[in-house]
Every structure is written in structure tokens, then in C-alpha cells.
Design a binder for these strands. Sequence first.
DNA 1: CAGTCGTGGCA
DNA 2: TTGCCAAGACT
Length: 359
Amino acid sequence: MLDLAHRLANLLEPWFHQHQRDLAWRRTRDPYAIWVSEIMLQQTRVDTVEAYYGRFLERFPDVGTLAAADESEVLAAWSGLGYYRRARLLHAGARHVATSHGGTVPDDPELLRKIPGVGRYTAGAIASIAFDRPTALVDGNVARVLSRLQALENPKQQDASAAGHWIMAQKIVQAGQPRVLAQALMELGATVCTPMGPRCEGCPVRSECQALAKGLQSTIPTPKQRAPSPREDLWAVAVRRNGRVLLEQRANEGLLGGMWCLPLIERKSTDRAGAPPRVIAEVTGVKVKSVEALVEPVKHVFTHRVWMLWPCRGEAAVVDVPFRAGYEDGPGRMWIAPGERPRGGIPKVTEKVLERLGY
DNA sequence: CAGTCGTGGCA
DNA sequence: TTGCCAAGACT
């Protein structure tokens, strides 16, 4: 009698060959391309990634190109994809591989793990998918599949960090073709063993599923409770000068680190006519002669907070003074005309506000 | 180790 | 409309 891992492997391999989705990153065995896809896919839906993956690889076709690029170019290519630290870590990772491995992505999980932005999951994914090395990988999909298969009702055992999952995943990927089984486990979680309304009728491993046998397929894993997102009301200040508006690059650390945004100023319940000119001058270094507030705020929901951005225009007191070349105004400051954008990264939230303001 | 970090789609 | 959450890494 085969053990569970081998029975699962024997069921998953033919199922994956027949039912896998046709995804761009499955049409290559280039470890660099697979690495890029894994970083993009972190906490991000397949449909979203598909819009970025091809363009990114055209612009940065190999490790050397990415390593040689400016960070601003990388962030520009990542704009709109979110979790921008991933892009900066990927860039740092490319430089690490270029420097320490001569531009060749290593196949050893221990070495992969040393690449910036590559954690335990991604190291396992690259090793197993790109190099067909039997290396465990547990993401949200795999954790859910394995939790249901074994009817694990303890939330600590359900988490992707649970030791039991990594042991089981290791046994499964080495019970057949690692490249196939690694993707099959995730594909099953993404298309059949979904968080809500799992399609157990079409599941290749339903005969092995203890959750289904107990009728627990919809209650495992236990939904995690999240703290409510605090709401922040901010003025999004469009300081205008000669028809251009000032953008500033945010600090490298923290939310939207390194991205280009309008200056943001805390909006107190007392002021409604716009950000106080004195505060605008303090924050931007530009004196404004008048401020005009728009009526409707732009709502932007992050994972852990909600921004209510209140656009307001401030006309610079000094006009008709020529800009410097390129309209750059010192490091991290730039004046843009309507339809124009800085070299670097622009988050969606900035695009939303600029559009509202007619830029 | 619990918190941080974007965005969009869907029930 | 609101809430949930999707191929995690890092601190």
C-alpha cells in the first residue's frame, strides 16, 4: 500500500497535466523569469500579474539587465502592482545574483534563500519549478489544501508556517515530478480547493480528503479575524506653478516607500476650505497665494488603513519663473504638466488623485 | 512574532 | 456598500 504522499502524487500529476491553466510563466523554464513571476504573485492575483509580467520581462529580460537598471526604472515598471518593496527587493536580488553568482540563478534552496526578497516559500518554488529539485513549498494555497486533506481544525496547524505542512509538502514533491507536483498543489488550491465554495466534485484528491468526509470543507481553514482599518483624512495638495503640479518622492521606508505622490497634509475637522497655506509652505517649501478645495474625497483602501484624500489646489505665489531643466526641483521633487509623469514609480492612489485634478 | 505593506475582484 | 482576501517577506 502506498503512503498518503505517493497516493496524492499519483492523483495530482495526471490532473495537473489535464487541467492546468495556460499561464505565461508556465511557458518558460528560465529560472529568472520564474523568479520574477513568483515575486509578482506574492499576495497578488494571477489576473493582475498577467498584465505586468510580460512587459516587465521585455524591459528586463535577464538578471544582468535588471541588475544594471536604476531603481526608478524598476519601480516605474512595477507601478500599480502594489507592495512596492517587492520590486526594490527583486532589484537588490538581481544585483546579489549578478555579484555573487555571476548572473546565474542558483538552484540550491540554501543559496536561493539568501537572495533579497526570496523567503522560504519562494526558494522552494524556484528550486522545484525552475530546477525540478524536490523542495518543499507552502503558500496559502498549499496550506489550505493540506489543512483540508487532513481535517486540521487547529488554526496553528493550518497556517502556511506550520511545520507539519512543510514536512508533508516535502514528502509530496519528492513522490514524483517535483516541477509538476509543486505547481499542482498550488493550482488545486487556486482553482478547486478555493477558500470560499470549494468545488469538491471536481477534486482529484477527494477520495483522500478528511475534511470532505467530515463535511468540514467549508469550515477549514478557520477564517482569521483582522483588526478594523483606521481611517485617515488627508489633504492631497496640488501646488501649481505655471500650469505644473508638484510631486514628491516618498521616503524609502514605510507605506508607498520611494513612490511619487502629491504632498499629503493631515486634514483636521476644523478646516474645510483646504490645507492651510502656512502648512503647505512648511511641507513643500512653496508659498501659495490661494487655496481651493474640491468637494469629493478620493477613497483608497489599503490592507491596514483607509485613506480619505481630499484634493485641494494651491496656486504658487511666485509664477513665471523658469523651471530647471527637466522640471526637477532638487532630489525627490518634480513639477509635472498634465499627462506627464515622473521617471520613477507612481502608485494607483496618486493616479486617482491626479486624474481627479485633471493631470 | 505580530504588524506592515497595495490593489482589485467578487460575494 | 462592505468585507474578504490573493503564489509572502521582512522586522
